[in-house]
């Protein structure tokens, strides 16, 4: 099997898992108050965006270069 295919699968599944936990944390913390919580919320939101990026790459919707064979 093509290594690119394996990498894509790992990336996509990983993105879903990590994104799931990130969103869960975000929901848990959403109602809490406090300066450190506020910063954490921003960080987790960005993390979710990162997971979306990785998912889109894994699904081959974005990202130009396939795994080069040489």
């Amino acid at each position: 099997m093509d290594t690119a295919y394996i990498a894509d699968t790992i990336g996509a599944i990983g993105a879903i898992v990590v994104g799931f936990f990130a969103i869960r944390f975000l929901r848990k913390e959403w109602k809490l108050k406090g300066a450190d919580i506020g910063v954490t919320k921003v960080m987790l939101t960005l993390l979710v965006i990162g997971c979306v990026e990785a998912l889109l790459v894994g699904l081959r919707i974005v990202g130009q270069t396939p795994l080069s064979t040489h």
């Binding site: 690119a4 990498a7 894509d8 790992i10 990336g11 990983g14 993105a15 990590v18 990130a22 993390l47 990162g50 997971c51 990026e53 990785a54 790459v57 894994g58 990202g63 130009q64 270069t65 396939p66 795994l67």
Partner: peptide, 12 residues
């Protein structure tokens, strides 16, 4: 990009 995504997911 594919390996990059795997690496990114490791960090995330």
């Amino acid at each position: 990009v594919n390996l990059g995504a795997v690496n990114a997911i490791i960090l995330f």
